[in-house]
Amino acid sequence: MTDSSGPLIEVRDLVKTYDVSRPWLARVLERLPVQTLKAVDGVKFTIRRGETFSLVGESGCGKSSVARLVVGLDRPTRGSVLFDGMDLAGLRRRSDIAPIRRRMQMIFQDPYASLNPRWRVEDIVAEPIDAFGLVANRSERSGKVAESLRQVGLSPEDARKFPHEFSGGQRQRISIARALAANPDFLVCDEPTSALDVSVQAQILNLMKDLQQRFGLTYLFISHDLSVVYHVSSRIGVMYLGRLCEISAAKDLFRRPQHPYTRLLLDTIPDVEMTGRERVSVPGEVPDPIDPPPGCSFHPRCPFANERCRQEDPTPVQRGRGMVACHAVEEGRLPPFKRSDLGQ
């Protein structure tokens, strides 16, 4: 069943809608229609073994929803997620699901909220060990916990402490240790460094890179920070309003961005080196996802939009090694992207 040459993750036309209607009685009395929010709308990508695939976009673009769907925390409305060739949604028996669940773990954004304050670090880190029955006895359990803590740069003595005795960066190390305790192949990291200070962020990113090399891990990395994404990713998908507008190899995306929204995002990266580049201020905001604009959802903010963009949904087309969904790119009417500080 497993094919070690195929992608580890294959996401096929994923759709997730949420019912955001008023309560039933109010809806009937006020004669309101059912309202749905399409958080994820036809998202499709693959993640190869050992690579870091990142999803970037502004808040509300659906990147975290995709992450939750991929690990199976939510069920997709349509479409499927294949892990190592197997569809999680197709499995019914607990005993079939558990071995796959063990192989995928998640790291969350807020290390203050994701660790139970009443548990000792030992029990937090041992949670997947207990859940999947990975050890035979208590001494093996503490041995495994100590090993995980050492792997993330903490000391085995820390196992006896409580989360409040640690700083934000150390707490994030604890959540990584918890994920590693299950011996996973695949980690979904949802904004793992967004709540951390920049010097601590560097520590965590370096640690994650190191662990990836040591254990051959595959990452799905979710972030809104393009500089971080540039640093960690092999490939990047850019999301806007529930859709993927571009997928590309990381370096290509920054040197030759195709989609106008990707270009917009690149323009908003602050210029820390003070090269004198003016940050372009883009008008407008992300539209209301309950009532998205017709046609290409980016057209109200796009400087290259024309009549076709206002009416017709762009379909994703293959471009080189990547994908882009944009009429302007397809018709070849986008000017080349110029930015001085990135080089060629």
């Binding site: 700083s167 934000g168 960066g169 150390q170 920049v198 010097s199 601590v200 962020q201 560097a202 520590q203 990113l205 370096n206 890179k209 393009l226 500089s227 971080v228 540039y230 640093h231 370096k251 920054f254 990266i269 820390v272 080196e273 500080d341 990135l342 080089g343």
Partner: peptide, 21 residues
């Protein structure tokens, strides 16, 4: 602090980090 900020165009090498907190 300045060295630990990830930058575009600076490839692959590990980020400089300040140990501790």
């Amino acid at each position: 602090l300045m060295d630990s900020i990830p930058r575009l165009g600076h490839d692959d090498a590990d980020l400089a980090q300040i140990d501790g907190a």
